[in-house]
Structures are given as structure tokens and as C-alpha cells.
């Protein structure tokens, strides 16, 4: 009996050591990642979440997904809980730019790298996050302008449908397009109004501009597909053929717009790719392995026109 006790202790210790080492192996194998998403406000966002989830499942990553429902306090609560759960990395799609410093400091103290996606934040201390992975709105605008310049040999009268005034995608897409067409004196923006990134407003604006400029409009450049799809209806109602009488260039490449390219109603749409999963997890793998990553990285965007739209339409997820 007296000899039994130390023996039991030995056995227990051995078991403990065995399970602990098993545990360590499992932890090494399965990466734990917390993702604080903004919410599910658009098709783009839904596709974005889906990409993060499916890619995690594919790579065997344990993804803790939190829907912020459009509120920063929900996101901060989620990040706090990720820290206490001891995840290997935290991904945030910040709803607003400010107010992140305290919770990011907590993450830093816990030595958990933070990756910002889609939107960036304002902070005094850039070391609080490892890197930012986003969409290059400027590059999207430039790609649209370059395609247009090639298609029209640098000539045409353009009407621009802007996004919500002051929003980053509207600002960048406007600036990039303006910068790029400055090289072509024949390409002129004759009017530019905001369609609020929205179908019905895009339609109302296009109706008004069609009456104001009549047949002199040769090109429509829309900051997103929704407005372009609204504008198409206005153009058809005016007895013109979108895609033929008026060239339409747009950004986002949502499935409906790619279909419109196939149907010849939109001439070209530049992708704003929501499928962040692969790039984000590649970056996390590097961070966990202790490698350096660039502070700012962009997801690659493609362009769809009549030459390639039909080939990709079946595969579009959003």
C-alpha cells in the first residue's frame, strides 16, 4: 500500500507528460485564428466571410469567426475573447478607423500578431498591427481607365457615377481614373455625379444626365457595379443600347455584372476581389514561422471584358 502511492504518482506523471506532448503536437499542427468581421451588409462581405471560412477548412485551421453586426464594441469584445482563448493570430476587418489602440495593445502584450483586412485604422503606434491586407482601389480605377483608353483609342465623352462622397473607394477610384485619363486629351469627363453606390440612385442620376447631355454621352464610368446596373436601365429606357451606343466601364465584378458583360450590356468590369482567405492565411503562416511580411499588401484584382467574361461566369461565387 505504501509502495503503491509513489507508483501511482509516477504513472500519473507519465500520463500527464504523454498528454501534454500530444497537446503540444496538436497545437503545432492546428493553427487557431480569430477573425472579427464587420457584419454581413453586402454580397461582397458575405463572399469575403465565406472565403475566410472555406479556406480555413481547407487548410485545417481552427477559425473562430465573429460577426460584429456593424458595431465596433462587438468587434472589440470578440478580439478580447480571442486573446483569452490564446489564438495564434487575430484578423480584424475594422468597422471604424479609430479606437483600436487599447485592445491592440492587449494583443501585443499577449504576443498575438494582428492582421487588418479590407480597411485600415488610424493609430499613433504602427507596431500594434503586423500588417494590412486590402483591395487597391486606386489600382482598380487605373485598370478601368487603361482599358477604356485602349478600347476607345483615347477618345470619348465620359459621364462618371461616383460612389458615396468621401468614402475611400469613391475617392481612390475617382482620383486614379482622373490621373490615368489625363494622358489622353481626347478622353473628357463631361459630368460627374454621385449615385451613392446604389442601384436606384444610379438610375435616377443617369436618367437626369441623359436628358441633360442627350446623345453626346459616349462612355459611362461607374465606381461600382450596382450603379452601372441602374444606369443600364436608364439607358435602355431612353431607347439606347448600353454597351453599344454607350460604353460602360465599372468596378467590383459582382456576378450580375459579369453576366451583363457576357450579355454585352457592360463592356468591362474590374474586380474588387473579396476572396481574401488564401492571402490572409499565407501571411499568418509566415508570421507564425517568424518571417517578415510587408506592412501593406493588396489582394490581386482581375479585369473582365467580352474576351474572358463567359469563361469565368460559372465560377463566380458572389
Amino acid at each position: 500500500m505504501q509502495k503503491l502511492l509513489p507508483r501511482l504518482v509516477w504513472v500519473a506523471a507519465g500520463l500527464f507528460a504523454a498528454t501534454a506532448s500530444l497537446h503540444a503536437q496538436a497545437a503545432k499542427k492546428q493553427l487557431k485564428v480569430g477573425f472579427a468581421q464587420t457584419g454581413a451588409e453586402s454580397a461582397w462581405r458575405t463572399a469575403n466571410s465565406e472565403s475566410m471560412k472555406s479556406e480555413a477548412a481547407k487548410r485545417g485551421i481552427d477559425l473562430k469567426f465573429s460577426d460584429g453586426q456593424g458595431k465596433q464594441e462587438n468587434q472589440i469584445r470578440a478580439v478580447r475573447s480571442f486573446i483569452t482563448q490564446g489564438v495564434d493570430a487575430i484578423v480584424i476587418a475594422p468597422i471604424v478607423e479609430t479606437g483600436w489602440d487599447p485592445v491592440l495593445r492587449d494583443a501585443k502584450r499577449a504576443k498575438i500578431p494582428v492582421i487588418l483586412t479590407d480597411r485600415t485604422i488610424k493609430t499613433e503606434d504602427e507596431s500594434l498591427f503586423a500588417c494590412f491586407i486590402g483591395s487597391d482601389f486606386y489600382e482598380e480605377g487605373r485598370m478601368a481607365a487603361d482599358w477604356l483608353a485602349k478600347k476607345t483609342s483615347g477618345k470619348g465623352r465620359i459621364v462618371e457615377l461616383q460612389g458615396t462622397p468621401g468614402s475611400a473607394p469613391a475617392n481612390e477610384r475617382r482620383k486614379a481614373f482622373g490621373d490615368a485619363i489625363a494622358k489622353y486629351p481626347g478622353l473628357k469627363i463631361i459630368d460627374s455625379q454621385s449615385g451613392n453606390f446604389e442601384r436606384s440612385t444610379g438610375k435616377v442620376v443617369m436618367e437626369a444626365l441623359l436628358k441633360k447631355h442627350g446623345r453626346t454621352i459616349e462612355i459611362v464610368y461607374a465606381h461600382n457595379d450596382d450603379m452601372a446596373l441602374g444606369a443600364i436601365q436608364a439607358i435602355e429606357a431612353a431607347g439606347l443600347k448600353p454597351g453599344k451606343d454607350i460604353i460602360i466601364v465599372s468596378i467590383d465584378a459582382i456576378k450580375e455584372a459579369v453576366q451583363a458583360v457576357v450579355d454585352g450590356k457592360i463592356n468591362c468590369t474590374v474586380e474588387c476581389n473579396p476572396l481574401f482567405g488564401p492571402k490572409v492565411y499565407d501571411t499568418i503562416a509566415k508570421l507564425v514561422a517568424g518571417e517578415k511580411v510587408p506592412k501593406k499588401a493588396f489582394n490581386k484584382d482581375e479585369l473582365f471584358d467580352s474576351t474572358n467574361a463567359a469563361a469565368v461566369i460559372a465560377k463566380r461565387q458572389y
Binding site: 453606390f197 446604389e198 436606384s200 438610375k203 441602374g230 436601365q233
Partner: peptide, 16 residues
Amino acid sequence: LWAANVGAADANRSGE
């Protein structure tokens, strides 16, 4: 009328 106007129902933006 909103949905009929553009042939789409945008839960996030229509009627904003």
C-alpha cells in the same frame, strides 16, 4: 415600387 424600379431588392440600401 422600390424593388420594381431597379428589379432588385437591396435590404441594406433601399429606403435609406
